[in-house]
Design a binder for these strands. Structure first.
Lengths: 220, 220
DNA sequence: CATCGCGACGTACAGCGTACGTGTGACCAC
DNA sequence: GTGGTCACACGTACGCTGTACGTCGCGATG
């Protein structure tokens, strides 16, 4: 069914399964059934389940490479572009985000976002430890946004638009600010919020003194 | 052994178990053994395992309430203090961080950080959607830092100071920036990086125009 | 004393990851 | 052609998981 078994086909099907039924629904047997084979056949292509999930993370992260545009002269625009690309990919695989994020980023594939961000930081004129700090500031912000949105998405999947928390509970817990701003919290535009924080961070970084000359982004 | 079984004792022991052996090592049987009882006894206090992990998250998040100091007049200092407190708690339970983060934050307990951050944003003179945006910017940044550090910690636990990635692999993958900045990446001071991004973000937010008068933090 | 309810505990079952053995077909040396 | 080798699909089996259900002991209440 669907051609010969291969590591790539297994990984792609695993991603489909995660997106359709959630991470917890992924088992070797179910995945094999999806592929029309026996569970043990998978082990000819993947050493164990953890490695499979690593491969899933790697596969998704690999899309960054193709999507990232490294020819943008203005480093602020390049950084924004990379962050948006990252977020777009996360939106394409919403239920896989936590899988990707929770894998240790020490494989060569996991370090690709770091590589790209470091390149941009250096192009902006930051060097050595400064580049690392700048890179981490924006990567961590983006990471937090993705985790946040993934949480929201999963919560939505879990409870089919049933009220997640009642105002009575909020009052009981003394969460007055949440209670008052509940409409603003509920109808918030996560896209706009993402851009807001991103612009803020990048502008602040751009205003920092440099340790080495940079190619673009002087404040006129 | 150790007094009567209770929900609180179960949750505390679960946290100990996570910190000692990792999340994957937590099973109802092992947890029960740790408590000196049978596995099924736990179900008199907790409906199922997922609820137990929810309770773990809630228990850890509850420490924010006691630790948070809401009497700081300067909103920037208040925000910094809250962020640091959050991070301190994460450092006290390093291997539980991903559990807390990956639970849906829609319980009253999970919304406590949101509540505190919203309070600070409003005290800073932001209101309505602006308060929500400001709150989210800093919360997402802090969240990203915690996830990042948790990943690092878990990686360290997983491989007892064996080299995680070789320079040869980096070259093969074309990660030139990572390769060159590897020393800076390795010996980086995560505390300093955290403060760097936090200050940057808070200062940038403080420079924003307000929609309502605020009590402190004017730029002189 | 009889009764009741709560909570600790054992048993049982479906499902999990995966170690191991077997079978089958494609390839190659002679 | 024939025998050997190898890759890979597949079945079986084991120890572990979460948890539904039944039982039993014990303190409180009539």
């Amino acid at each position: 069914m669907g051609g010969p078994l291969s590591r790539n086909r297994i990984v792609r099907t695993a991603i489909e399964l995660i997106e359709r039924d959630g991470v917890n629904a992924v088992s070797m047997r179910r995945l094999a059934a999806e592929l029309g084979t026996g569970a043990m056949s998978l082990y000819n292509h993947v050493p164990h389940k953890a490695a499979l999930l690593d491969a899933v993370a790697e596969h998704i992260l690999a899309e960054l490479e193709f999507a990232a545009d490294s020819d943008i002269p203005d480093w602020r625009e390049a950084a924004r572009s990379m962050a948006r690309t990252f977020r777009d990919i996360a939106h394409r695989y919403p239920r896989s985000v936590m899988v990707v994020v929770s894998r240790q980023p020490n494989s060569a594939a996991g370090l690709r976002p770091v590589e790209l961000a470091l390149g941009i930081a250096r192009a902006a004129g930051f060097d050595g430890p400064a580049a690392v700090r700048v890179m981490r500031a924006v990567v961590n912000y983006v990471l937090g946004c993705l985790v946040h949105e993934a949480s929201q998405t999963e919560a939505q999947w879990a409870s089919e638009d049933r009220p997640l928390v009642t105002t009575a509970e909020l009052d009981a817990a003394g969460l007055v600010n949440v209670r008052e701003l509940l409409p603003a919290l509920a109808e918030h535009d996560s896209e706009a919020d993402f851009e807001f924080g991103l612009d803020l961070l990048i502008s602040a970084l751009d205003a920092l003194p440099r340790t080495s000359p940079h190619t673009a982004g002087w404040k006129g």
